[in-house]
Each structure stands twice: as C-alpha cells, then as structure tokens.
C-alpha cells in the first residue's frame, strides 16, 4: 500500500471521526436539560471534533504554510469557545454584555485562516 493511499485513508478516517464528534456534541446540545450541561457537551465535543477535522486536512495540505494556517484556525477557535462558554455559564446568556456579540471574531478568522 503506497504512502499516498495510506495518507488519504488516514485523513479520511480523521475527518469522519471529527464529524462524529460534532454529531455527538449536537446530540448533547439538543438532549441535555440545562445550560451548563449543554455547554459542557458542546465545548468538549466540538473542540475535539474541529481538531480531528483539522488534523485530517493537514495531512492533505499542499504546503507547510497551508498546514500552519489550518492549525491556527483550531488554535483560535479553542480559546474563543472556552471564553464564550465561561461567560455564558457565569449567568450571562441572553442580555449579558459579553455573550451575544462574540460572533464577528470567529467566523472572520475562521474564514480567513482557512486558506
């Protein structure tokens, strides 16, 4: 089995595993009763899911630069989700200052860093 084929299979496995983690996180979001339990499920499963997807894509990245940019996406998404989870569980949620406006930071860098 050539190295290229092995790499592709490994990358596919990682991406599918990441998607599986995202699904688990979403099931937790829908089924769990409380804000804090939902945040717990979301942050853990989604961060790991994103990490696995990014690792799978890094294996297929054409250059070191592209691989580094993918990793930057992961490293920026993790503290963002951690801070948002912290603010929401602190008794924020709707109406608090910090929780609502977290939007512009992550999609912008996620979109820009994905090149």
């Amino acid at each position: 089995m050539s190295a290229g084929l092995l790499l592709e299979i490994l990358s596919a496995v990682l991406v599918v595993a990441g998607a599986g983690f995202f699904t688990v996180g979403t099931v937790g979001l829908v089924r769990l009763p409380d804000l804090r339990t939902r945040l717990h499920a979301l942050t853990k499963a989604d961060n790991l899911g994103l990490g696995l997807v990014v690792l799978g894509l890094v294996l297929q990245a054409g250059s070191v630069g592209a691989a580094v940019k993918l990793l930057v996406v992961w490293f920026l998404a993790m503290p963002a989700s951690a801070v948002v989870a912290h603010l929401m569980s602190r008794g924020g949620g709707l109406g608090a200052t910090g929780g609502a406006a977290e939007g512009p930071g992550t999609p912008g860098e996620g979109g820009a860093g994905g090149r």
Partner: peptide
C-alpha cells in the same frame, strides 16, 4: 441601557 442588567465586565472577556 440594556433590558437585562449587564453583569460586570468579566475579567476573562
């Protein structure tokens, strides 16, 4: 002012 009283600006934020 916002309708819900804003929490004090979290140090984390």
């Amino acid at each position: 002012p916002r309708h819900a009283p804003p929490s004090a600006r979290a140090a984390t934020l």
